[in-house]
Structures are given as C-alpha cells and as structure tokens.
Amino acid sequence: MIVFVRFNSSHGFPVEVDSDTSIFQLKEVVAKRQGVPADQLRVIFAGKELRNDWTVQNCDLDQQSIVHIVQRPWRKGQEMNATGGDDPRNAAGGCEREPQSLTRVDLSSSVLPGDSVGLAVILHTDSRKDSPPAGSPAGRSIYNSFYVYCKGPCQRVQPGKLRVQCSTCRQATLTLTQGPSCWDDVLIPNRMSGECQSPHCPGTSAEFFFKCGAHPTSDKETSVALHLIATNSRNITCITCTDVRSPVLVFQCNSRHVICLDCFHLYCVTRLNDRQFVHDPQLGYSLPCVAGCPNSLIKELHHFRILGEEQYNRYQQYGAEECVLQMGGVLCPRPGCGAGLLPEPDQRKVTCEGGNGLGCGFAFCRECKEAYHEGECSAVFEASGTTTQAYRVDERAAEQARWEAASKETIKKTTKPCPRCHVPVEKNGGCMHMKCPQPQCRLEWCWNCGCEWNRVCMGDHWFDV
C-alpha cells in the first residue's frame, strides 16, 4: 500500500509500505531520502505521535493516508518512550493509558441525555464484534464512529474520518494533550489543546475536521460531520418502519427517538411537499423529531443533505422563500418566477423588478396576487391545505425507538455506581478489583462488596467470576 509523507509540512511524497511495516522502518526510509538522522524524526498522525514499535496496521493507516513527519531533536526523557523501550505506560498493571487514536474515538455516547454525564468515556458498548469485510486488514473493525456528507465523488452519507490540525499553522502536526470525549470537544473551536510539532510553531489549540472515509482524499478535501447519525450498535428499532437498520439518525429530543435514513428521507420529502418545515429565527429551515417532541429541531442543517441534490435544492429554495415571508415580504405569483420581494408595508401595487435578471417585471396586487387592478379585489380565496398535519407515529413504536432507553438498560445490566462519587462504572470481565475512572475520584473498590478495596476482598473473592 501507499502512504503519503509530508516532511516538515512540505509537499508530500509517496512511500510504499506493508501492513506489518513498523513506524521506525518508515522513519528509516524517510531519513534516507531526506539525509537526516532517523532518531530525530517524529511521525504524527490523527493528533498522535506514533511509536517506533507500532506497525502501519496498528495505527489504522489506510491506503493513501497522509502522515506528517517532522525533524525535531529529542528532548530529555522522550527518546526512550518513542523507541518502544522502557515506557512506564506499558508496564503490566499500570494505570496510565495511551491517548486514544482519533481513528478509534467514539462519540456516540454523547447523544445520551444530559443526566448521563461521564458515560462518553466510561461506558463502552460490546456491539462492535462484526466481522471485518472481505479485503480489510485482519482485526480491523467495521464499526463506524462518525458519518459525514461527502460532496465529492460519493454525493451521499458516508463513514467519516476525524482529523485534527494546529489552529495556528493549519498543519496536521499537532499532538493532542488528551483525546475528545464528546461532540462539544470536536465542534467547539479551541476547546481542546495540544502541542504543535512543526518547527518554530508555538500553536497549542486544536482544530478538528472530518474527511470522507470511503475514498482517498487530499489535504484540502473536508466534509461536514453529521453528528446525529450513528451506527445502530444498540439495535434500536426505527420509529417509523420498526426495522432494525444501521446507520440511524438520533433526534435530540428527551427520548432520543431513532429513525433509519430511508424513513428520514421520506419524512423530509413529505414535509417538504406540504411546505411544513419549521422556520426558526436562529436555526433556519428545519424539522423536529418525527414524533413531534418539543425542543427537538435539527440544529445542523447539513443533515438535510440526505435528501439528495434535487430535493436539497428545493429545500434551500423553500427556506429562502419562507425567510422572505417571515420578513413581511411577498413572492411573485407569476408561474416560473417566484422571486422574493420586500415592498413597503402599505404598498398595494407590487412590481417584480426586472433588474439584474432576477425579476420578471410582472405587476400584481398584494392582496389577491392577481395582475394589478384598481378598486376592490374580486375574490380572495383562503389558501387550502395549509394546516399542519401531524406525522403519524405509532405510540408503541415510539416507545421502542428510544436510544436513551437502550442506554439505561445497558447501564443497569453492566454497571454499578462507584461507592464514593456514584458514577456508573462498567465491568466487562476481569477481577473484582475496580478503579473509578473519574479523575477527581480514582477510588479503588470491590465490585462484589461495593466497598473500598481491602485485604478481605483480596483474599476471599479477588478473582471470582
């Protein structure tokens, strides 16, 4: 396979590697080409510095992935760790964990309700045991953590790749202090920090972006993250068709209702045909949960890209028209025109101005929308079919299609509260000796007794199943 190397943020060049090629071997190839010592090179990928003893497969490097290699003399205490030698983080029983690669970060837990604080980093599902597709590297999971809308060759929703760059020099040479644990960490600028490894760059702020994971991409090709779309790892039924499908869209209502993408497309087109989208002054033209839940309008309007190009163009047109109407304007009634106009409040005669090729020149009556006339309008008909009709959803289907309910059931079956801080902690095999993952707590306690870890627990039921 081919990976592209950008040395000291210059133009990239291809390097041929195998899945079992080590990072140090990659350094040696680059060092020979650039005429520099291999031990002064640092390989940066997806916000993480890659260790010498890791392989291309370990690092989730795919065909035509772009890695950054910078030349920086080692500072005291760094060289041993980078070589894969006596790194205290690798000691058996050590409590410190390697910062998780962005290629394996899962933010789907952050669609849980606000009262489930902490689960994004504490609760991990076991539903990723799908067998890898044919042709994928051994052991590589097909679980997708992110979804994007690819405006490039795909023109559809695709699995996405999370990447990070330095907000100062805009190069992907920043190593994160810690990985993101929720969508806010990724979507809110300057929320996460790190250290830029580019020479002479003092940058410390992280800037995240997404790429389409279905095809090789260049540095400049980015895609918009659709953070309401998630892999259906909890096997929730769709609120409309009641099938279990994946991926799904999880509405931001209190129940976190789930809808499959085909039904979401149908829901949007139906509402669009009836012009029953909601115009929100802050958000724009949007839709609420299909069950009509309060405070559930979709905030990231790129989710409506699921409509496809033709329907999305209609959505944008109707949204612009609705904006004009909300501002007190009118639409030209001549067939084939429909231009938005903003006449004076007491102006009865409205002319669709033909300047700049935008208007048709038609003069019409503001009251009856017919060709302009003197005197009273002959008839004014009330528009028919403008009443909002509820999208029919079966109550039982709505009850079963809740992301929140599956989460709470998982928590109930696989977790116990920490005796000190009461945060839910998952036990997935292993011994009875637990350690609270909350940095402010870190209590060592017994899963069996529910009390602080002691010699009695150690001698009596340390390794009970």
Rank of each mutant, 00 (worst) to 15 (best):
E309Y: 10
A320E: 14
L123M: 13
C368E: 03
C421I: 02
H68Q: 04
S167R: 12
M434P: 01
D53S: 09
P247S: 04
T414A: 10
E374P: 08
N144S: 08
Q276R: 08
C95Q: 14
I2M: 12
P281S: 10
C241K: 01
A406E: 12
L50N: 00
V248D: 00
S109M: 05
V456H: 15
E353F: 06
G84W: 12
E321A: 12
K299R: 11
T270L: 05
C289E: 00
Q78I: 14
S181N: 12
M80H: 12
K129W: 08
S108E: 14
C166K: 00
M432E: 03
W54I: 06
F4L: 10
R305F: 06
P424L: 09
R128G: 14
D53F: 03
E444V: 04
A138D: 13
H257G: 00
P216M: 07
S127R: 10
H215M: 01
R396F: 13
Q326N: 10
E399W: 11
K27E: 00
N144I: 04
I44F: 05
Y285G: 01
A138L: 12
E376N: 12
C446K: 01
R348N: 06
G292I: 02
T21F: 06
S141F: 10
S127D: 14
E195Y: 10
T242D: 15
Q63R: 08
V269R: 03
G361I: 03
G213F: 05
R6S: 04
G152F: 13
H11P: 04
P180V: 03
I229F: 05
E382A: 13
F24M: 13
V423D: 12
F463I: 04
T410Y: 10
V250N: 02
T415C: 10
A397H: 09
V70W: 02
N235R: 12
D39T: 06
S198I: 07
I229H: 01
L123R: 14
H279P: 09
V244G: 02
K27P: 01
S193D: 09
G328Q: 05
T55K: 08
P343K: 07
L228W: 04
C446T: 00
L26F: 07
E452K: 02
G47M: 11
L307T: 06
D460V: 04
W445M: 05
E16V: 06
G308C: 05
P180M: 02
C431M: 06
L228F: 05
L102M: 11
S22D: 04
S167W: 04
R314G: 00
N8H: 02
Q64S: 14
R392L: 13
D53K: 04
H200D: 14
A379Y: 14
R245K: 13
G152W: 14
G357Q: 15
Q282H: 10
C377D: 02
V36K: 03
P153T: 11
D20W: 04
Q389F: 10
G118T: 06
Q276A: 15
S218K: 09
V30L: 04
R392W: 12
Q347M: 12
G329D: 03
I69N: 00
V17Q: 01
N254M: 10
D274T: 04
E28R: 06
E452W: 15
G85N: 12
D18Y: 13
T217C: 12
V43C: 14
N81S: 14
E310Y: 11
S131L: 11
G459S: 15
K151C: 11
A291R: 08
E367M: 11
P153N: 10
P247M: 05
T55R: 07
N448Q: 05
C368L: 02
I239A: 08
C365Y: 02
S246D: 09
C457A: 00
V456N: 15
F463D: 01
F209A: 13
Q40A: 08
N235L: 06
D87C: 12
D243F: 10
R402C: 10
G12Y: 05
G284Y: 03
R314W: 02
P113N: 09
T55N: 06
K413L: 12
F208N: 01
N81H: 14
V70E: 04
N254V: 10
K299W: 05
G338H: 06
T21D: 08
P419Q: 04
C238L: 01
L41E: 01
K349F: 07
W462K: 00
N295C: 05
E16R: 08
P137N: 13
C323L: 13
G329S: 03
D126V: 06
W447L: 03
P180W: 01
T415L: 08
Q78V: 14
E426F: 08
W445R: 01
C95A: 13
N58P: 01
T242F: 14
Q178P: 08
C332N: 03
C253Y: 00
Y312H: 12
R392M: 10
A91W: 09
Y149S: 02
N144C: 05
V186N: 01
G361A: 07
A398I: 13
Q34W: 12
R170A: 10
Q158W: 03
C441K: 01
A92S: 13
T168R: 08
Y391G: 05
E28D: 09
G84S: 11
C238Y: 01
A230G: 06
S167D: 07
G135H: 12
T270S: 06
Q438H: 05
I229Q: 02
T222G: 08
Q197P: 07
G94C: 12
N81L: 15
A405N: 14
A46C: 11
E309N: 15
L102A: 12
M327A: 14
H302W: 07
G450H: 07
E426S: 09
P199N: 08
G308N: 06
V324D: 04
H279G: 08
I259W: 01
S131K: 10
R275C: 02
R442Y: 07
E300P: 14
R275D: 00
G459E: 15
